[in-house]
C-alpha cells in the first residue's frame, strides 16, 4: 500500500484468534453468517467445502487453518467473508467481523522485516488505529504458489479465462 500513503481507504476488520485483520472493502462482496458447509471429498486440503450463496456454489476456505492459527469450535460469531481472490469468488471463514475502519496511508507501516517470512507474503502491512493493530491482508497472495497454480488452472478450466496471467 506504499503508493497510497495519503489516500484514505476503508478496511473491513475481522478477527482470527487474538489478531485483527483488515481487507480493503472494495475486495469484499459481502459478509454472511456461517451456513451449513458441504465437505468436498478429494478437494485440496485448504478447501473446507462449498456453500450455497443464493444459488451459486462457492468454495469456502478456513482462514484459521490457512494461517496455522489452530482450530476452534465454531460459534454464532463466526462469519464468512465473501471476497474475490485470484479471480474467483471464495468464502473465508473468520472468527468474527468487528467493524469497518477508515485508515489513511500514513497510519500504515510495512510488516517489520524481522517478522516477514515466506509464509507472510500475504501480509501487506500493519495499520495502527488507536490501540488497535490491524494486519492488512493481500487476498491475492493468501494462496501459495502450487495452490495458486491450481486456482488459476481451475479458473481457466472453468472457462473463466486466464485472468491471473
Amino acid at each position: 500500500m506504499a503508493e497510497n500513503k495519503t489516500n484514505i481507504q476503508q478496511l473491513v476488520v475481522f478477527s482470527l484468534s487474538s489478531e485483527e485483520y483488515g481487507v480493503p472493502i472494495t475486495q469484499i462482496q459481502e459478509i454472511i453468517r456461517l451456513p451449513e458447509i458441504t465437505r468436498v471429498p478429494g478437494a485440496s486440503g485448504f478447501i473446507e467445502g462449498v456453500i450455497n450463496l443464493r444459488g451459486r456454489i462457492i468454495p469456502v476456505i478456513d482462514l484459521r487453518g490457512r494461517f496455522g492459527l489452530g482450530r476452534k469450535e465454531r460459534t454464532d460469531k463466526n462469519r464468512i467473508v465473501v471476497a474475490d481472490a485470484v479471480g474467483q469468488t471464495v468464502g473465508l471463514v473468520v472468527d468474527g467481523v468487528s467493524e469497518v475502519l477508515q485508515v489513511s496511508g500514513e497510519q500504515i507501516d510495512p510488516i517489520p522485516p524481522s517478522l516477514a517470512s515466506i509464509d507472510s507474503e500475504y501480509l501487506s502491512g500493519v495499520a495502527k488505529v488507536g490501540k488497535l493493530l490491524v494486519i492488512l491482508l493481500n487476498l491475492g497472495k493468501i494462496f501459495n504458489d502450487p495452490e495458486k497454480a491450481e486456482l488459476a488452472d481451475a479458473a481457466g478450466a472453468a472457462g473463466g479465462g486466464d485472468r491471473e496471467k
Binding site: 478437494a43 456454489i57 472453468a158
Partner: peptide, 18 residues
C-alpha cells in the same frame, strides 16, 4: 449446478445441487 473454480478439481462428482 456445475462445480467451478477450485472445487472443480475434486474427482468423482458431476456437479452439485441445492
Amino acid at each position: 449446478k456445475t462445480l467451478t473454480g477450485i472445487v472443480k478439481r475434486a474427482r468423482g462428482f458431476s456437479g452439485a445441487t441445492i
